[in-house]
Amino acid sequence: MMKKLQQIGYPLFFIVMALLPAVLNSRWLAVATTFVIFTIVALSQDVVLGKAGMFNMGQAMFFGLGAYTSAILNAHFGWPLLATLPLAILIPAIFGILLAGPIIHLRGDYLLVATIGFNIVFVQALQNNLGGLTGGPNGIFGLQMLSIPGMGSFQDFTPYYSALIVLLFTLFILRNLDNSKAGRALQYLREDDLAAGSIGINTRIYKIYSFALGAGIAGMAGTIYANQYSAVSPEAFDFIQSVLFFTIVIVGGSSVPGIIIGVFVMFVLPEIFRDFSTWRYFIFGFAMIFTMILRPRGIWPAKFGRIPKAFIKKG
C-alpha cells in the first residue's frame, strides 16, 4: 500500500502541483505557494512531533529564524537570497541544538510549554528590534527576490516553483531519514524512550538531533517564505502559527499524505471560505474537536514501524 502510494501518488501529486499555476490567478498562486511552504514547515514539525514524539509547539520560531536570517543578510549585507540559504538552514539548526539541549529531558506538556516560551521570547525580541537588525514590529521589507535571468514574464512563478523544489528536497531528506538508522531510532523513541535507551539508543542525542533537523528544514522554508513576500514580519512567526503547525500534524496524522491533507484543511480551506470570514474559525474549532473524537490518530495516520495486524493477538 505504502509502496504503491510512493510510486504513483507522489509523482502524480508533483505533476498536478507543477501544472497548477497554469489555472490559478495571482491570488490563488500566492495561496498555493504558501500551501507548499506550510507543508514543508509541517513536515519539519513532524520530524520532532510525529517521528520523535516530542511535544514541540515552537516550530514557527525556527521557521522565523530562517526567514529573518535570509532577510537580514539580504537587506543589511546585500547577499543574494540564494546565497543566504545555507546559513538560513544552519543558524536555526544551531539554535535548535542550543535551545533543545537544556529542555530535552522534559516530558510531554512541560516540553510543550517550554517551546511555547521560546517562541514568545523570540517574537518579542523581533518586535523590540533586537540589535537594530530585525526592524521592529514592521519587520524587514523590500528584499531582493530570487530571480532567474532571461525568464521574462515567467518570473512571477519563481516563488511557487522554488517552494516546490524545496518541498521535493524535503521529501527526499525525509524518505532517507525513514530508511536510516537515525529515523528508526526516532520511531523507537516515540514509542517508548525508556525501552529505546535500554537497547542502546542514545536518546538524548537523537532527541536533539530531531530538533536540529526539524529546525534546519523549517529554516529552509523560511528563506522561501521571505522570498515569496520579499518581506518578513514578526506576526508571521507568532506562536499562534506554531499552534497551527502543531494542529496540522495531529489533525492530518503524522504521515506525508496526512500532513498534506492537514495543511489543505487547516490553511487552504479557510482561504476558500474567506467570504464566511466571521464563521469559518468557529466551525473549524468544532471540526478539530470532532476530527479528534472520530479519528484520534489523525485523518491519515503513519503506518511505519507498526506491528502488522496479523501478528497482533486479538482480544
Binding site: 495531529i250 468557529f282 474549532g285 471540526a287 474537536i289 479528534m292 473524537i293 484520534p296
Partner: peptide, 19 residues
C-alpha cells in the same frame, strides 16, 4: 485517546469559544 488528540481538541475548543 492519545494525549495529543486531547491537546488538539482543547485547541479546537479554544478556537470555538474565541470565535
Amino acid at each position: 485517546a492519545p494525549r495529543l488528540s486531547a491537546v488538539v481538541s482543547a485547541l479546537g475548543a479554544s478556537m470555538v469559544i474565541q470565535n
